[in-house]
């Protein structure tokens, strides 16, 4: 769900703090040019993961520890999967573990400079 990912990113980079009200499904629909029901599904997904919580009649708010939850989720799901893929690809190319670690370090340095 793109909307969910986008909201997560907004929370990660501090645009929304814990306790802040996030956009309604209609605002999201208008901003992203998507169907409001699709936007609502994105919001509900985040509510199920306790990143957002509902306040009856008021809307959706950012939960306590939302940042931590998102970071943990991304680490265990997204990053872990990416790393696995990297490892698999390295194996296909017969790259040694030491060489792979070296490449990761280089990438980190470049990323740090850029």
């Amino acid at each position: 769900m793109q909307i969910a990912e986008w909201l997560e990113t907004e929370i990660l980079n501090g645009h929304f703090q814990s306790g802040d009200k996030v956009y309604s499904q209609y605002q999201l629909a208008e901003m992203y040019n998507i169907n409001p029901a699709t936007a609502a599904k994105g919001l509900n997904l985040l509510a199920e993961e306790n990143i957002l919580y509902k306040r009856r009649g008021l809307g959706m708010f950012v939960a306590e520890n939302a940042r931590e939850r998102i970071m943990k989720k991304r680490k265990t799901q997204v990053l872990a999967r990416l790393v696995k893929e990297v490892v698999l690809e390295a194996r296909r190319l017969n790259i040694s573990d030491a060489e792979l670690i070296e490449m990761i370090k280089n990438a980190q340095q470049e990323g740090g400079e850029g």
Partner: peptide
């Protein structure tokens, strides 16, 4: 057109 339709639907 799609944008106008969505906005008026909202």
């Amino acid at each position: 057109f799609y944008r106008a339709l969505l906005k008026d639907y909202l």
